[in-house]
Design a protein around this nucleic acid. Structure first.
Length: 110
DNA sequence: ATTTTGACTTAAG
DNA sequence: GCTTAAGCCAAAA
């Protein structure tokens, strides 16, 4: 039997980020810096975005719930870009402040 | 192994 | 409030 590596056991910074992203409750949003910090590297916010860009599975990893440190919606590989991202968050009950997310209200944890 | 790039963040003008 | 510059880390070429 060929040894198949368990996708849920891969030890990588990116995998950790995916796990955290899946833990984001609906109607809430987390920032890249937040995930980076929870992943172990507070300064790896950029790497978090790179990991998301790899984006293995959309329904499995709600990357649309991840926004910039200021609540601004950045990039998005699916749909029409940030446009779709905003619609998805809005549909989940996330509060918006103009073009950005109201972090104090819809921010993940506090 | 080295270089490039990228869905970031903060500071300064 | 927006733009530019520099700093940071990790994955891909």
């Amino acid at each position: 039997m060929v040894k198949e590596y368990d996708s849920s056991m891969t030890s990588s910074f990116t995998e950790t980020v995916y796990s955290l992203t899946r833990q984001i409750p609906k109607g809430k949003v987390a920032t890249y810096a937040q995930l980076a910090r929870l992943a172990g590297n507070a300064k790896a916010a950029r790497a978090v975005g790179s990991a998301m860009r790899t984006n293995p599975d959309i329904p499995k990893t709600p990357c649309h719930r991840v926004v910039a440190s200021d609540g601004a919606l950045t990039g998005y590989s699916a749909g029409y870009g940030v446009k779709t991202k905003r619609e998805m968050l809005l549909a989940e009950g996330v509060s918006f402040k103009g073009t950005k997310v109201d972090l104090p209200v819809s921010g993940w944890k506090k």
